[in-house]
């Protein structure tokens, strides 16, 4: 449950995820003097500038120097402050990867990273600004918590939750223009606990980020048009992963497809696959995302369509998986 006065202070319909983040951070900072902010010449673009405008003495612009910025954040955390750091995902997870790993994660410091422009959300900018590797990288850093909110509302919930969790947290959002799924924060966001968007017994779609809204819509259509019972999980926390929810899906639906705005290697799909493999139970599985290539140039909506991450893509993938008759395989029934 969301606590305090918080979740009515922004208007999710007229604000982007990044703007909501900026707003929520300002509120939190009012109550918690340990909070400081950092950006690397992207204060405006990432919206942490809102915090900077309100608390100029608690905000540090590192200039275009991401490695230095994450080192500075580590120092500030060592000094007892709680740095919120924002730049684009690619300059966080790749450019400054070692500072994040060695300065922040290795020392288990209380640094909260809100990385924007994740996945292909800045599609027009090309591969230098896409980031389809961050979940793989961040997930492999010990001590790190990795969250991919479904939309702006969930971003607000995640930002609040990360402050209560000691240690480093990586929250990956888009460019901020994505449509929202949630109406308010009152649905019980909890780090490490998947949210069931719809119950189902035929197949489970495990999603994060923009794919949550698309999958919810697909599930509704599949129920109406195909008579399918589709479970949709919003797996906002990639690490620690809600293994219980995955195992339940393995046993109760026997088919799992993951959808994420990330390389199919190393992210949500891989995390889910690890749990399935460990379980020793039979389960049809597919991971949908960017198929281990550098993503095309284009507006994000076009790219989501191309890579099968929009509602139509999800519908097609579910129909394909449901059409396979692996249930006829001899030992399918014995596996459980």
């Amino acid at each position: 449950m969301s606590e305090g006065l918080t979740w009515t202070v922004y208007d999710a319909d007229s604000m982007t995820a990044a703007e909501i983040y900026g707003e929520v951070l300002c509120q939190l900072a009012e109550e918690d003097e340990r909070i400081v902010g950092l950006s690397a010449d992207l204060a405006k673009s990432t919206k942490i500038g809102r915090f900077g405008d309100k608390y100029p003495e608690r905000f540090f612009n590192a200039g275009i120097a991401e490695q230095n910025m994450f080192g500075m954040a580590a120092g500030l955390a060592k000094a007892g402050l709680v740095p919120f750091v924002s730049t684009m995902a690619v300059f966080t997870a790749l450019r400054a990867a070692e500072q994040v790993r060695t300065d922040i994660c290795y020392q288990n410091l209380n640094v909260k990273i809100i990385a924007t422009h994740g996945g292909a959300s800045f599609g027009q900018a090309g591969s230098t600004h896409h980031c389809t590797e961050d979940l793989a990288v961040m997930r492999s850093f010990a001590n790190m918590t990795v969250i991919v909110p479904a939309d702006g509302v969930e971003t607000a919930a995640a930002v609040r939750a990360c402050l209560k969790k000691d240690g480093p947290v990586y929250i990956r959002i888009g460019r901020g223009f994505e449509p929202t799924y949630y109406k308010n924060e009152d649905y019980g966001f909890e780090i490490g606990r998947a949210v069931t968007i719809s119950e189902g017994t035929d197949i489970t779609l495990i999603c994060c980020g923009v794919c949550v809204l698309a999958a919810a819509e697909a599930a509704r259509i599949l129920a109406e048009d195909d008579g399918l019972s589709v479970r949709v999980l919003n797996m906002h926390t990639i690490k620690p992963l809600d293994e219980e929810a995955v195992l339940k899906a393995v046993i109760e639906t026997r088919r799992i497809v993951t959808f994420e705005e990330h390389n199919v290697l190393g992210g949500l799909g891989s995390a889910v696959a690890e749990v399935i493999a460990k379980s020793g139970k039979g389960c049809a599985f597919e991971a949908v995302g960017i198929p281990d290539c550098f993503c095309h140039v284009g507006y994000p909506e076009d790219l989501y369509t191309h890579y099968g991450l929009d509602t139509d893509g999800i519908l097609a993938k579910v129909r394909e998986v449901m059409g396979k008759d692996f249930e006829e395989d001899e030992d399918w029934e014995d596996e459980i």
């Binding site: 275009i64 690619v90 300059f91 450019r95 027009q124 900018a125 090309g126 591969s127 230098t128 600004h129 095309h296 140039v297 284009g298 507006y299 076009d302 790219l303 191309h306």
Partner: peptide, 26 residues
Amino acid sequence: NKFMSPFGMHLDSLKVKGVDVSTGSL
């Protein structure tokens, strides 16, 4: 900037003739 165009905001040396080196990350 359009879908599948060789021209994104930051030019790609594998897609655009004359570009010696892909840049965009400062």
